[in-house]
């Protein structure tokens, strides 16, 4: 059975696109057939994070408007046999696509793919509405900052109002050294405030910048964020994976792990 997952956050710059790229690539590495859809029309980014920017011919708007078939617009990632990208249009705006059209497209793609990952634009306007229209579940990306968590709370409210079946949280860019000193909210703090299920935490790590520079998602390699993203992918497909120890001490994360298993 295929699943449609929207990656969203409300606030910009918290790591939606990086998360989409890594989750999509990770699921492909786990032998799932995956298509990543960049729904940020006008501000195309997922293609560069994936390192596929030179291979774009058609885009999402072309598909929706019937200028080409979905198959023609999807770029096959040569590094992974099961991974495809449907890029966004750079010279159009959010109103070029409607929620109904997105739903229809996603339904069509469901027949061929195990996972459809929708990279949502920032904000709560048309682009957001388009991205969530056809989704079965949502991954909320937030950072341990007041502004990002506030926006995440708003997004969760909107998703619940839209009857999203499953909503999970990814706490991104956590710095355990700062948490230890009391200068950053902990994963527990964020969970207490947002009160949704945690599916993973990703540390703030220079390897993310390096991977983005190179256009190659780091999921699954032996860096800490690479492991964290792979664990998130395994949890998405239903495996039980203990929470990664980001700090190098047991107590704290063992607790989070237990929290996770309860759900």
């Amino acid at each position: 059975m295929s699943e449609v997952i929207v990656v969203t956050s409300g606030k910009g710059g918290v790591g939606k696109t990086t998360t989409s790229a890594n989750v999509g690539t990770g699921l492909a590495k786990l032998d799932k057939k995956v298509v990543l859809i960049d729904t940020d029309i006008g501000l195309r980014n997922l293609d560069v994070v994936m390192g596929l920017e030179n291979r774009i011919v058609y885009n999402l708007v072309d598909v929706v408007e019937g200028n080409c078939r979905a198959k023609q617009a999807m770029i096959k990632d040569k590094r992974y046999p099961n991974l495809y990208l449907l890029p966004s249009a750079q010279t159009r705006d959010k109103t070029s696509v409607t929620p109904e059209q997105m739903k229809k497209l996603v339904e069509e793609l469901k027949e061929e793919f195990d996972y459809i990952i929708l990279d949502c634009p920032a904000g709560i306007e048309q682009g957001f509405k388009n991205a969530i229209a056809g989704a079965d579940r949502a991954l909320i990306v937030t950072t341990p900052e007041v502004s990002a968590i506030r926006d995440a709370d708003r997004i969760i409210g909107l998703l619940e109002a839209n009857e999203m079946k499953k909503i999970d949280l990814i706490v991104n860019r956590i710095r355990m050294d700062m948490v230890k000193k009391g200068d950053m909210m902990s994963i527990e703090d964020v969970l207490e405030i947002l009160a949704i299920d945690l599916i993973g935490a990703v540390p703030d790590d220079e390897n993310i910048v390096i991977a983005t520079n190179q256009g190659e998602p780091l999921v699954g390699n032996n860096t800490l964020p690479g492991q964290a993203y792979m664990n998130i992918c395994k949890r998405i497909i239903g495996e039980e994976v203990p929470m990664l120890d980001l700090a190098g001490s047991n107590g704290f994360f063992a607790k989070i792990g237990k929290l996770f298993k309860k759900n």
Partner: peptide, 9 residues
């Protein structure tokens, strides 16, 4: 400052 952030939020 982490607790300040949490309380404000």
């Amino acid at each position: 400052s982490g607790n300040v952030a949490k309380d404000r939020l």
